[in-house]
Simulated assay, not measured.
Amino acid sequence: MRLAVIGRGLWGAAAARHLAMAGADVTLIGPTEPADKATHNGVFGSHYDEGRITRKNALDPYWVGVSTAAIDRYHEIERQSGVRFYTPTGAAMVGGAAFMARVEVGRALHDVPCDMLDHAALSARFPFFTFPADFTGYHETTRAGHVSPRNLVAAQAKAAQGFGATLLEATVDGLEERAQDVVVVTDQGRRSFDRVLVAAGYNTDRVLGRAPSLEVYARTVAFFEVDEAQGAALSAMPTLVYDTPEDPYLLPPIRYPDGKLYLKLGGDPTDEPLTTDADVRAWFQAGGNPQVRDRLDAMLRRLMPALDIKSLSMGSCVTSWTKDRRPELARLSDRIAVCTGGNGAGAKCSDEIGRLGAALIHDKTGDDR
């Protein structure tokens, strides 16, 4: 049986690895990262970056479960591929009583190991942060930190190829389902498969040729360059999610391809919808919203007033949301299934969501962990 996974992002690459490990004849289809986002006129991916938080605790217990399962396999993926993508810096979630009560539901359900810190303990452990006096926190000291989404996709794809998967560098324009197969129409020609899993992120609706189902929002991230001495001084800094209306997330100093160290902060004050392909393309090409960047700058200076920032820059990405804020994992027909809708939480748990997506078109992957 010939299987195809459409989408070379975090979920698609994970699905391809699980299918290949199960012995399937699988082809992973998607374009490479564009050399210049500002002039690229094709599809984009939000994994073109070096930092995503990975942790088990979350405000929704569902994400705790799938993230825990995925994190359990990080070392397996690194071993299979020889590509390092995971840095175990630890992770903290910090907030007021109502915020932490929500975190506690999933923490207790999945027995997440972490240190519970009152405000005094937070200040002592993380002197570089300044939190409101009523904030407490959970600090995951093990099996948490950050991943390079770019390297994680590369690792999944390389491991999949090691198990026999085929990689097709192409952009998918649509599907033609027939009685005996599914024709995948790409900019490199037409290919026939017995079953297809569509894991194309924000582009999923277009690939499926269906009415808009996903809500796609623009996101701006800010990058704060620090020097080597500042990076060393923040060696104990965990990733951080904390309780403010912008729902911000912060990553410690990470070395980017330009050789520099950057802290990364995300957290948009409003949801700005992107309703057409042209909207998404223009957003990625623009590289972010300067007003949001400046707002994030002010947020970080309040949170880390002693931080010595060398430069400030920004980047653009998108998030895709389902109506129920859970991944869309479904068989749409006997031959086509879908795996989409990261809901702003899809990086850390991507290997588990990919496994669940793979099971939709190849039953042997369903119970394998």
Results as ranks from 00 to 15, higher is better:
residue 234 L to M: 02
residue 275 T to G: 00
residue 177 E to D: 12
residue 225 E to G: 07
residue 261 L to H: 09
residue 193 F to D: 12
residue 284 F to G: 01
residue 247 D to W: 05
residue 165 A to T: 13
residue 251 L to P: 03
residue 261 L to Y: 00
residue 222 A to E: 03
residue 219 R to Q: 15
residue 292 V to L: 05
residue 292 V to Q: 06
residue 186 T to P: 10
residue 292 V to Y: 02
residue 253 P to K: 02
residue 216 V to T: 02
residue 191 R to E: 12
residue 204 T to G: 09
residue 213 S to A: 13
residue 201 G to S: 09
residue 161 Q to Y: 04
residue 245 P to G: 04
residue 246 E to A: 12
residue 296 L to R: 09
residue 284 F to R: 08
residue 180 Q to N: 15
residue 259 G to V: 02
residue 273 P to C: 01
residue 244 T to E: 14
residue 202 Y to M: 10
residue 296 L to W: 05
residue 278 A to Q: 07
residue 300 L to A: 05
residue 232 A to L: 03
residue 163 F to M: 02
residue 169 E to C: 11
residue 270 T to P: 03
residue 269 P to Y: 02
residue 253 P to S: 06
residue 161 Q to E: 15
residue 170 A to Q: 14
residue 233 A to H: 02
residue 282 A to M: 04
residue 267 G to Y: 04
residue 165 A to M: 13
residue 243 D to V: 03
residue 248 P to L: 02
residue 214 L to Q: 13
residue 182 V to P: 11
residue 200 A to R: 07
residue 170 A to I: 14
residue 288 G to F: 05
residue 269 P to V: 09
residue 222 A to Y: 08
residue 262 Y to F: 15
residue 166 T to H: 14
residue 178 R to Y: 12
residue 239 T to S: 11
residue 265 L to P: 01
residue 280 V to Q: 03
residue 183 V to A: 15
residue 276 T to R: 04
residue 214 L to P: 08
residue 158 K to D: 07
residue 243 D to T: 00
residue 241 V to I: 11
residue 194 D to E: 13
residue 211 A to K: 10
residue 239 T to Y: 06
residue 263 L to P: 06
residue 216 V to F: 04
residue 208 L to W: 09
residue 250 L to G: 06
residue 187 D to F: 13
residue 264 K to T: 00
residue 281 R to M: 01
residue 254 I to P: 01
residue 249 Y to L: 10
residue 247 D to Q: 12
residue 231 G to S: 07
residue 292 V to K: 07
residue 195 R to C: 10
residue 286 A to S: 04
residue 204 T to Y: 07
residue 185 V to E: 10
residue 295 R to K: 09
residue 237 M to H: 06
residue 250 L to F: 10
residue 224 F to M: 02
residue 273 P to V: 05
residue 180 Q to S: 14
residue 169 E to L: 12
residue 192 S to A: 13
residue 192 S to C: 13
residue 165 A to L: 09
residue 193 F to H: 11
residue 192 S to R: 15
residue 172 V to W: 12
residue 245 P to S: 03
residue 284 F to C: 01
residue 278 A to P: 04
residue 279 D to F: 06
residue 178 R to S: 14
residue 176 E to F: 10
residue 206 R to A: 15
residue 163 F to C: 09
residue 228 E to I: 00
residue 249 Y to V: 03
residue 205 D to G: 14
residue 248 P to A: 04
residue 237 M to R: 00
residue 176 E to D: 15
residue 272 E to D: 09
residue 265 L to S: 00
residue 188 Q to Y: 04
residue 275 T to I: 11
residue 249 Y to Q: 00
residue 251 L to R: 06
residue 185 V to Q: 13
residue 159 A to K: 11
residue 276 T to E: 06
residue 301 R to H: 08
residue 160 A to Q: 09
residue 298 A to H: 12
residue 268 D to I: 00
residue 226 V to R: 10
residue 188 Q to E: 14
residue 163 F to T: 04
residue 168 L to V: 11
residue 274 L to V: 08
residue 194 D to H: 07
residue 271 D to A: 08
residue 218 A to V: 03
residue 177 E to G: 11
residue 287 G to H: 05
residue 245 P to K: 00
residue 195 R to L: 11
residue 279 D to E: 00
residue 159 A to Y: 07
residue 191 R to M: 12
residue 241 V to D: 06
residue 200 A to V: 05
residue 273 P to T: 04
residue 203 N to W: 15
residue 294 D to K: 01
residue 219 R to Y: 11
residue 204 T to Q: 10
residue 279 D to V: 04
residue 197 L to M: 06
residue 260 K to Y: 07
